[in-house]
Amino acid sequence: MPRWLLRGRPGRGSARGARPGPLFGACLFVVGAGFWWASGGDIRRWRDWRTITGQTAAVTVVGPLAIRLGMLLIVLGVAALGLYHLVDTASYGSWLHSH
């Protein structure tokens, strides 16, 4: 790993870089679920953006978008964290440590 990428990080062996993804994804999921609940059943897709007539109607599009992005971040973050632990526990001579 390049040294400029490791600069300012608290230790090389920590998995702190993988935690904000799932945490931010969970927050985005909760916000999206709140928007979905607030829209009261009038859920629209991204392609329906031009059908919005009022200022508060944007919630009907942003709610499902936030839920989808939140789930994507949760899945990718957990997968990255799992891959980090898989590589971290592998022995030094294994194919996971080859360059």
Rank of each mutant, 00 (worst) to 15 (best):
A66C: 15
A38C: 03
Y84M: 01
R68H: 12
A18T: 12
R16H: 13
G77P: 03
G34T: 10
I52D: 02
L81A: 15
R50A: 08
G82K: 05
Y84V: 02
R50Q: 08
T89P: 03
R12G: 14
C27G: 13
S94R: 05
W36Y: 14
R7D: 12
H97V: 11
S14I: 06
P2E: 09
V62D: 07
H99F: 08
G32F: 01
R44I: 02
R12Y: 12
D42A: 13
T51P: 01
H99A: 07
L69G: 11
A26Y: 00
S91C: 07
V62E: 09
S14R: 15
G8Q: 03
V75D: 02
D88A: 15
P10E: 09
G70K: 03
A18W: 07
V78M: 12
T56Q: 12
G25D: 00
R45T: 05
R45I: 00
L73D: 01
G8C: 10
R50M: 03
L83T: 15
R50P: 01
G77M: 03
V62Q: 07
L69F: 10
G25W: 01
L76H: 03
Q55N: 12
A58K: 00
G54H: 08
G77K: 04
W36K: 07
M1Y: 06
L83K: 04
S14V: 10
G25I: 02
L23E: 13
W4E: 11
L96C: 01
G54A: 11
G11K: 07
T60V: 00
Y92R: 14
R12L: 15
S94N: 04
R16T: 13
W4C: 10
D48S: 08
T56P: 02
G11E: 09
L65A: 15
S39G: 03
A58P: 00
G41P: 08
A38P: 04
A57E: 14
S39Q: 12
I43R: 11
A33T: 09
A15V: 01
G32S: 05
G77S: 07
S94W: 06
L76C: 07
W46M: 15
V75N: 04
V62I: 15
G63Q: 02
T51M: 09
G63T: 01
W95F: 12
W37L: 13
C27A: 14
I67P: 05
A38F: 09
G13C: 06
I67A: 05
R50F: 05
G21E: 10
T56K: 12
P64W: 08
V61G: 01
W37I: 10
W37M: 09
A38M: 12
T51E: 14
W36D: 07
S91Q: 13
P64M: 09
A18Y: 14
Q55I: 00
R47S: 14
V87C: 11
R44W: 09
V78H: 06
A18E: 15
W95M: 08
R68C: 08
V31E: 00
V61T: 05
G32C: 04
V61Y: 04
S98T: 09
G63A: 15
G11I: 14
Q55K: 10
P10C: 13
W36R: 06
G40K: 03
V75K: 06
W95V: 12
L65I: 10
L76Y: 05
P2V: 03
